[in-house]
Design a protein around this nucleic acid. Structure first.
Lengths: 130, 130
DNA sequence: GCTTGACTTGGAGTAAACTCCAGATATTAC
DNA sequence: GTAATATCTGGAGTTTACTCCAAGTCAAGC
């Protein structure tokens, strides 16, 4: 799979794909004979994982640290687990806060609906009274 | 309430408070005789609202647009409502995606726990066989 | 009244995460 | 075979959202 196919598949620009690789967020992608990127199934898996984690707000730095540990093998299992737990906890906190904000927006929208109805009533009154 | 008190109360730096005001995210804050900011209850309300919306991911641009509409009065009620609905929908989508990522992280962490147990077992085996 | 610390402004600087560019090589279509 | 298109790299530029700075005014303690 070449880079533009992967770009389409995951909705990341080719520049972003190269950037993630350059920054060490994903392992070096497999190349064909002439040096062009040829993403394997596994390469795609990493892209998908990073895309997902980035969308959830994990930083480039954190993700780079994770894959750096990953490449040090089994002796970093505990560290990687701890990193994931820390990020999970942060994500959970963000989610809770955002859930609250969603409810607040819902409430605000309902209030706007009432205000709009109210406003229309008043306009009607004014017209009648003329 | 002076700016550093508001800063402490909401956990936003004084620079950020001034920046939000300069950018028109919050209405101009009340000043005392000598020109220093003296936040009213209402000013604080705006600060809290903007802080909350920013934390949920609404952009500076969007929030500026909202308060610009707000200051045009009742004839922008429908527009403001539509803006809030659009942002609510985006937030809801983000939340759903992030919820999925949270579950994925939870799963990954459980897998790590198993891997760690497995790894320790193997270490023990190696030691015994020596 | 003077020093020390807080507040003011306009504008410059920074961090994170891309995004774009130039110049070179590779592939595809005709 | 050649033109058009895609990919490569290193590095510069951009966007968003702050964050810091300088130079000046204001306020509180002694």
């Amino acid at each position: 799979m070449n880079i533009s196919q992967v770009s389409k598949k995951y909705g990341l620009s080719v520049d972003t794909l190269r950037y993630y690789e350059k920054e060490g967020l994903i392992p070096p992608v497999h190349r064909n004979e002439s040096g062009l990127r040829d993403y394997t199934e596994q390469d795609c898996g990493w892209v998908e994982f990073i895309k997902c984690m980035r969308a959830a707000g994990l930083s480039i730095d954190t993700l780079r640290e994770y894959i750096t540990l990953y490449f040090k093998g089994n002796r970093t299992l505990q560290k990687r687990k701890n990193l994931l737990i820390a990020e999970r906890d942060k994500l959970q906190a963000r989610l809770k806060e955002m859930q609250g904000t969603l409810e607040r927006l819902d409430y605000k929208i309902r209030v706007y609906e009432e205000k709009i109805v109210q406003c229309e009533k008043e306009l009607l009154k004014k017209r009648k009274s003329k």
